[in-house]
């Protein structure tokens, strides 16, 4: 088996995550799509770290994880806040900034 399989898998996960963001209207689901994309990128980093024999990739993946955690906290807080004021978690309902 080639190590490239990991990269292909990561690509598949990334594409699915991206499509989920575009297709799903529930903010939480779209947000999970974003998380999936981040994790796919992490898998790439880890695979390349192994390919090059350099741990820096893993360190970067670690940072991605930390930042993603912070992002999740804020993102969910925003979703909760919007839900409270507008009674909906649908992305299409939060379209007040259009011209």
């Amino acid at each position: 088996m080639s190590i490239l399989n990991y990269l292909v898998l990561s690509g598949i996960l990334f594409a699915i995550g991206g499509t989920a963001v575009l297709v799903r209207r529930n903010a939480i689901v779209a947000f999970m799509g974003v998380e999936l994309m981040l994790n796919a990128a992490n898998l790439t980093l880890v695979t390349f770290a192994r390919m090059h024999g350099d741990l820096t990739g893993q360190v970067i993946a670690f940072f991605v994880m930390v930042v993603a955690a912070a992002e999740v906290v804020i993102g969910l807080a925003i979703i909760v806040s919007i839900f409270r004021t507008r009674g909906s978690a649908s992305l299409d309902d939060a379209s007040l900034l259009k011209s």
Partner: peptide, 28 residues
């Protein structure tokens, strides 16, 4: 992929914290 530390961290951070946070918000 020889990233033991990250693997453990992934379980703790994502499966343990982030996804549970998601579930929590879904309940909310």
């Amino acid at each position: 992929n020889e990233a033991t530390f990250l693997g453990v961290a992934q379980v703790v951070v994502y499966t343990g914290a982030v996804m549970m946070l998601f579930v929590f918000v879904i309940m909310l």
